[in-house]
């Protein structure tokens, strides 16, 4: 089992419903601080749904109901009194398809700090942008064309721009929803390298279809099937010696 000394997130009997359809069944999971946790499982198993519960992204879906507790730093995220705006400054998110805003590269990164009033003046803002882009490994590529639209970058660069955009707000947790599924292998390698760097500072939760990716980047892995958490454990153990047959079947590609 996972060592439980530095737990960042725990969920308590988490259930999610879309209208009548239940997408998650009594999920109890704990995620460690400053480590990378991968969520794997076949399509439609609820891993993305779980990810979107952490920053209450499911609020934007009209017919979605979330029950149960999600505790981040001992505060229940699912409490309606929680301000999602503040919650999301603490939990950044990177999406499946790179989604830079139709603005300049600079404005894309500066967007979060600007709306949250994190920079007192323009100089500070520029500092934040530069730092974030450097951290996302994009600075050297774009430093001469910060005023060009973010959409003019290549797919991999766009995704790194989105990561820079997310870390510019200085979150504690970064949620990644299949961040490489729309990218080519080289860009994917770049992102994976970046994640390795980022985990020193951030808690990362990544949803992925690609099991090699999960094995490469994560320390812990959770396997989901049909809305249920089947197995959670250190990545090495899940991939080499899973406790349950279902996990074994999935890992070895017997179904998926």
């Amino acid at each position: 089992m996972i060592k439980n000394d530095n737990i960042k997130i725990t969920t308590n009997d988490l259930c999610v419903f879309y209208d009548e359809k239940q997408a998650l069944f009594d999920v109890n999971i704990s995620i460690n601080e400053k480590e990378t946790t991968a969520l794997i499982g076949p399509s439609g198993c609820g891993k993305s749904t779980l990810l979107r519960c952490f920053n209450r992204m499911n609020d934007t879906i009209e017919n979605c109901v979330v029950k149960g507790n999600i505790n981040i730093d001992n505060a229940n995220v699912n409490n309606p009194e929680i301000d999602v705006v503040q919650l999301r400054t603490k939990i950044g998110m990177v999406f499946q398809k790179p989604n830079p805003f139709p603005k300049s590269i600079f404005d894309n990164v500066a967007y979060g700090p600007k709306i949250h009033g994190m920079a007192k003046n323009k100089l500070e803002l520029e500092e934040i942008v530069e730092k974030s882009l450097k951290q996302a490994g994009l600075w050297s590529e774009v430093k001469d064309r910060l005023s060009q639209p973010g959409t003019s970058l290549s797919g991999g660069q766009q995704q790194r721009l989105c990561i820079a955009r997310a870390i510019a707000v200085r979150p504690e947790i970064i949620l990644m929803d299949e961040p490489c599924s729309a990218l080519d292998p080289i860009a994917t390698a770049n992102i994976e390298e970046l994640m390795d760097e980022l985990k020193k500072e951030f808690t990362i939760i990544i949803v992925t279809h690609n099991m090699q990716q999960a094995a490469r980047v994560s320390k812990n892995t959770a396997f989901f099937h049909l809305g249920k958490l089947i197995e959670l454990g250190p990545t090495d153990q899940i991939f080499t010696n899973p406790k349950l047959e279902k996990t074994q079947d999935y890992i070895t590609g017997r179904y998926g």
Partner: peptide, 18 residues
Amino acid sequence: VPNSLREGSYGLGATKYE
């Protein structure tokens, strides 16, 4: 306007108005 842009903005903690 693609939903991904909305989600990207919400994900950064922006309000609906912003």
